[in-house]
């Protein structure tokens, strides 16, 4: 589980890069004259109101934390994060404020990652389960982005979901296909199965059910191409396989003069995974 905490700064960094990319994309790229309404700010009033709603959500979280401290910490900070994120999503949907939505969705994903790490404490559950759970969440975001595309008032919401789905998946696959990423894959497959924790198992099955449900919905409404749906199915399958993998020896090891093991070259399994991950990251 330590590997998860070691990876957390990189995951957060990826998310921040994703948000910046989202902002740049929405503001500058692909916004043609007829699509002007897809800009992040439509008017001065919209600019100001988006920021103030975002502040209100942040202050809500801080206020609950302060009252929590005054009352002797009855709630964990993860619960406060979850509650604040849910309120943020509700506000974002009601008022169509995309920055609050972005931050709230990231908050929800962060809650799951942190809470799952808490559930895995003491049970030595492999990090692959948490990694897969997060990938399921961003896949759900991508499908929700497609599902929201129909109505004009949800177009900007759709872009937020799509970007929050696309960028982490692309980033994760690209990272995993590198030497560093393969090393991470080797580490996160160490440990016991996620079935040791009923909470993690429950959520992973719920996520899979959501993905299947959203795929069926978007295919029925013709909001997604068949090839796209197939790729999402294959990706989901890949993520499931990663979660169920036994410990992998991706790198051949040798003992050096100081009796430390160091990686020499890819094993057969390592070559297999490198090929699969390179294929998915390029496609």
């Amino acid at each position: 589980m330590d590997i998860f905490y070691d990876l957390l700064p990189y995951l957060i960094g990826l998310l921040i890069i994703g948000i910046v990319y989202l902002i740049i994309y929405v503001v500058r790229e692909g916004v043609k004259e007829k699509d002007w309404y897809l800009q992040s700010f439509l008017s001065k009033e919209d600019t100001v109101s988006q920021f103030f709603f975002l502040f209100s959500v942040f202050f809500l979280g801080i206020t609950i934390s302060a009252f929590n401290k005054d009352l002797g910490d009855p709630l964990s900070w993860r619960t406060i994060l979850l509650f604040t994120s849910i309120v943020g999503v509700v506000i974002a949907y009601y008022f169509k404020v995309i920055y609050t939505l972005t931050v709230s969705l990231i908050g929800l994903a962060a809650w799951w990652g942190l809470q799952a790490a808490e559930w895995a404490q003491g049970k030595d559950i492999k990090g692959a389960a948490l990694f897969t759970g997060l990938l399921f969440i961003v896949t759900i975001f991508y499908l929700l982005g497609r599902a929201h595309e129909k109505e004009i008032k949800f177009k900007r919401v759709s872009i937020v979901y799509s970007m929050l789905g696309l960028i982490p998946i692309t980033g994760a696959l690209s990272t995993l296909s590198t030497g560093f990423g393969l090393k991470i894959l080797e580490e996160i497959t160490k440990g016991s199965s996620f079935f040791s924790s009923w909470e993690i198992t429950f959520f992973l099955f719920v996520f899979i059910a959501f993905i299947i449900g959203l795929l069926i919905y978007t295919l029925n409404k013709k909001l997604i191409f068949k090839q796209e749906a197939l790729i999402i199915c294959l990706l989901t399958l890949l993520f499931v396989i990663i979660a169920l993998l036994p410990e992998q020896t991706i790198f051949l090891k040798t003992q050096d003069y100081f009796l430390y093991y160091r990686d020499v070259d890819l094993s057969k399994i390592g070559i297999f995974w490198a090929t699969i991950l390179k294929y998915f990251s390029f496609n």
Binding site: L42, E45, V48, S49, Q50, F51, F55, S56, L60, V97
Partner: peptide
């Protein structure tokens, strides 16, 4: 929290009518 929420809400109400459909 309350002031920022109310401020956001009041600004939202002032959005020009031609943008309401979004």
């Amino acid at each position: 929290t309350i002031v920022t929420f109310i401020a956001g809400w009041l600004m939202k109400k002032r959005i020009p009518p031609e943008l309401k459909e979004f």
